[in-house]
Design a protein around this nucleic acid. Structure first.
Length: 495
DNA sequence: CTCTCCCCCGGTCTTGG
DNA sequence: CAAGACCGGGGGC
């Protein structure tokens, strides 16, 4: 027993040694594309972890790709570290060794919203893939608007096809102008959350009363959330989902545009019903721009020349607790100043609802309006009080006295639920009104106007200050409640 | 089919009351 | 002895 395990180990080590010899860390193959661009990176590694650490140590903007070998070493993968432009330079010519190439979506990397869609054709004779894709895109766009205030349509979604006779297979990559997700784990949470209506179907088990449950279902249908079209049968005739939920794991390998699986012929091509217009930038071909658009982690290039990484986006005008929102609005609409709710954040552990306020800058600490810094209103749902904090450096640790919430607001929190139900409800992004009847939050949003943006980001020193405090929020929300959809997003803004 | 990576699950070890 | 950390096998993709 022990001997055979040692034998296995020894064999592995020998294989590894061989693999190192075959793929030395300094590959002799070192292309130099442009004389003016001295630093070319093109390195192969037998293990993903090695490639990842090398990529991280690089000062150049390089990325890890997985290459599937063919024939005798079928199934084996080696890992390439290079830049997008260098990869494209060799990739576009259909270089044999690059035919089965995967983008490694690194742990913690900012990335786009992406979907892997598939079903077994013979088991789903009645299913119309194209219609399903179209319905799904519309649904996801609706949810992006609802949850994050992001307006998009099928025109923003690169639709790649890798279908065969056996299998309907698509990749969707959402190319949003100003927003990207914090990482692919957060993308997974968002997708999971918006698909709750179809995921939750068999299990019930909670102690929610039946009336509430039925209202949930009704609500879902009213919102066009009938997701039954996503239900498909797998090869064995068992129920499964059109959307593959297994692709949001750490360091996921995601097959590239124009790549096929080793031993298969179906490469990803632009689907015939694709509506995404990838506009080529100067010096790039249409094909390259499609390639760049298809890369899940290629976030910086889209649309703008100069993108500035700002912070987590959660710019929602209204939370699921409309009564609380309305109350906070009465607090920030005084003396003829029309304050508004720029953002809300919910910290489940402390049951704190934190509002970032726009236009209204009255600070109790200084007894006047701040000139350029905004304030926060914190609603403590547990204590049923609210107080004011602010972003100004001199008020950093200031917290105003607590004021009681109006009685009528508190009544809506009488219903308490356990942890599990909180998770369920918070994930259930679509059911704003249903979740309103309970304590936990489901995110909701609205767009904020350009003028509000310029107002907030107007002063540079304020920006830094604001960013710092947002970072704290990020951290906190990370620690406290993973279900928070609002912490999923990272925001990009042009200068 | 083979391979890598990664998640999950179940068993075991550790720690602390 | 129970809860949490740790490890290794199974299975999915």
């Amino acid at each position: 027993m022990k001997m055979s395990k040692w034998g296995d180990r020894l064999k592995k080590v020998e294989e590894l040694a061989q693999s190192f010899q075959k793929n030395p860390l300094t590959t002799p193959y070192k292309p130099r594309l442009w004389p003016c661009q001295p630093s070319s990176v093109w390195k192969l590694f037998p293990r993903q972890s090695m490639a990842t650490s090398f990529a991280q140590s690089c000062k150049e903007a390089v990325h890890v790709f997985a290459l599937e070998k063919e024939k005798e070493s079928m199934g084996q993968r080696i890992y390439l570290v290079t830049s997008y432009s260098e990869l494209w330079f060799y990739y576009r010519t259909y270089t044999q060794s690059l035919m089965h190439c995967y983008e490694v979506i690194p742990e913690g990397a900012v990335c786009k919203l992406y979907l892997d869609l598939e079903f077994h054709k013979p088991s789903n004779k009645g299913s119309d893939g194209k219609t399903m894709v179209s319905l799904l895109i519309q649904y996801v766009c609706d949810k992006l608007l609802e949850v994050y205030g992001i307006e998009c349509s099928a025109k923003n979604v690169l639709n790649l096809d890798s279908s065969t006779e056996e299998k309907f297979s698509r990749h969707l990559i959402f190319c949003l102008q100003q927003a990207a997700f914090k990482d692919n784990i957060h993308v997974g949470r968002f997708i999971h959350a918006i698909l709750q209506p179809v995921l939750n179907k068999p299990k019930n088990g909670s102690h929610l009363d039946n009336g509430v449950e039925t209202r949930f279902m009704k609500r879902r249908k009213e919102e066009g959330g009938d997701l039954r079209f996503l239900q498909v049968k797998n090869k064995d005739g068992r129920d499964s989902l059109f959307v593959d939920l297994g692709v949001y794991t750490k360091n996921r390998n995601f097959r590239l545009y124009k790549s096929s699986k080793a031993g298969k012929n179906a490469a990803f091509t632009v689907a015939e019903d694709n509506q995404c217009i990838a506009k080529p930038e100067k010096g790039t071909s249409l094909e390259e721009s499609i390639f760049l658009a298809s890369l899940v982690c290629n976030v910086r290039y889209i649309g703008h020349k100069q993108l500035r990484f700002l912070c987590a986006l959660s710019g929602f005008l209204s939370s699921p607790h409309q009564e609380v929102d309305n109350f906070v609005l009465t607090v920030v609409r005084k003396d003829g100043i029309q304050g508004s709710l720029r953002r809300w954040n919910y910290f489940a552990a402390e049951q704190l609802l934190v509002y970032d306020i726009a236009k209204y800058r009255w600070c109790e600490n200084v007894g006047r309006f701040h000139k350029s810094n905004n304030i926060m209103i914190v609603v403590d749902l547990k204590e049923e009080v609210w107080y004011q904090k602010c972003h100004d450096p001199e008020c950093r640790n200031f917290r105003s006295s607590s004021y009681p919430l109006p009685q009528e607001i508190c009544i809506s929190y009488v219903l308490t639920l356990d942890e599990e139900d909180q998770v369920y409800l918070m994930d259930d992004a679509g059911n704003i009104e249903s979740s309103q009847e309970h304590k936990p939050m489901g995110p909701q949003s609205t767009t904020h106007t350009e003028e509000e943006k310029s107002d907030v980001w107007g002063d540079e020193r304020d920006d830094w200050d604001y960013l710092e405090s947002l970072d704290n929020f990020e951290q906190k929300s990370e620690e406290i409640s993973d279900q928070l959809l609002l912490s999923c997003m990272a925001d990009f803004d042009s200068q």
